[in-house]
Design a protein around this nucleic acid. Sequence first.
DNA 1: TTTATTTAAGATAAGTTTGTCTGAAATAGA
DNA 2: TCTATTTCAGACAAACTTATCTTAAATAAA
Lengths: 144, 144
Amino acid sequence: MFSKACEYGIKAILYIATQSIDGKRVKISDVANNSGCPEAFTAKILGKLTKSSIVNSYKGPYGGFEIEMRKMKTTKISEIVYAIDGDSLYNGCALGLNECDANDPCPMHEKFYGIRKELKTMLDTTTIYELATKLKSGKSTLIR
Amino acid sequence: MFSKACEYGIKAILYIATQSIDGKRVKISDVANNSGCPEAFTAKILGKLTKSSIVNSYKGPYGGFEIEMRKMKTTKISEIVYAIDGDSLYNGCALGLNECDANDPCPMHEKFYGIRKELKTMLDTTTIYELATKLKSGKSTLIR
DNA sequence: TTTATTTAAGATAAGTTTGTCTGAAATAGA
DNA sequence: TCTATTTCAGACAAACTTATCTTAAATAAA
């Protein structure tokens, strides 16, 4: 469904958010250890998310990553997915046609339409904050 | 969502089915030309689908691929997906955890649960015949 | 100013998926 | 039997994704 890069991006952000809620910045090694993502690869992905200004990064001692409270409450998971995987999940045809719409559909278009819409709605209405608080309270996990 | 291999597999089967409805066997070059799939790669995928006995293949002159009427009416799209992509779409965790269930969920588990179930149900209830007849009648297309 | 610490950026490597090519095996028909 | 036609099988190649490594740049604190 998501690429590995996207999975890591979401997990990394959720861990960073749990720490930002406590006012703590975290460095990449902490993110990797606590999200179960490979360190170097995750660093690269966090670079993208920094450029998309979803997280903030600070160099040097006491530096690291953090995400503002306002940001984690307003940023939807769909924005992370879009920043990393682009719009393929939303606009791509199930059978890979260059164009595929109700006027000239692939054989699965109609069948997929509803499911994709729900997926999109779900990602568009779920905030980082919502998932991070669930994670922080121990109701979900990043590592297993 | 699906791998390229899976997209090609579904498109190839649907084209073969439209021809089998007319009692015509088709060879790989015809499948490639009429489904918009690369010939050699599709040949390999059709090999898998032949082994899964979803299609029948015949060597030699007047040979090619065909799918029995009974088979196309009873075979679900989920079986094609399973034969090519395995069960990752059904069982994989959205965030890539090795195990992820209601007891010990990833942060997105609950959000994904319903959508994945609907996707599964859709693929489990859609037959090759249903999509092939729609395609044959011109209501959908494989190439664009 | 120097040092230690941290992210940034880009080169490189490894792995997987996608795609092609070649020769073998089967088979229908002359 | 011979030939043309077709799938089958596996080697090979290209492209993309995933992952690592190395060096540079920034910065806090002594």
